[in-house]
Amino acid sequence: MATTTETARPHWVRTVLIGKRPRRTAVRILVLVVVCFVWFRFVLLPIKVQGMSMMPTYTENRVNFVNRVAYLFHKPMRGDVVAIRTSGISIMYMKRIIGLPGETVEFHAGQAVIDGVILDEPYLKYNCDWELPPKLLGADEWYVVGDNRSMPERDHEKGVATRRRIVGKVLL
């Protein structure tokens, strides 16, 4: 009797790897894979930061996530750091929103000026001397720029992003 019980008992390695009920384990794994795929593809997109235009807020090679559902119920807001798609989401721009639709954005003596009022940007650590003429944003246009403005203005990628270009809000 004791012998029979011992032969029916699965080996401990097998129990650790696939559990006592393999079929249930397989279903769990399948569900987990599907949930992870959906979650990390359509909700929280994993990203790796490259480049220096968001320094020092975001340093190079830092891993982060883009919340793709952040703007389901409201529009992107000033101060949000967002991901902006190129022809797809394999490579995206990471920028901060400083101008909202309908506003006029300009740079004077290195300071962002929105509708004639200097924008308070506590996240900026480096000074700059950018001068850019006023630009009126359209109804579906957000003005985005990086936090590192220590480089010459022409070397810094910035500009207007439409809503469909904004993939989501950077999470961390």
Partner: peptide, 18 residues
């Protein structure tokens, strides 16, 4: 069209692509 811009802008790639 303006003079070539630099690639100092922060780009970030989705990890799967990398």
């Amino acid at each position: 069209a303006r003079p070539p811009f630099n690639n100092f802008h922060a780009r970030f790639q989705s990890i799967p692509s990398d």
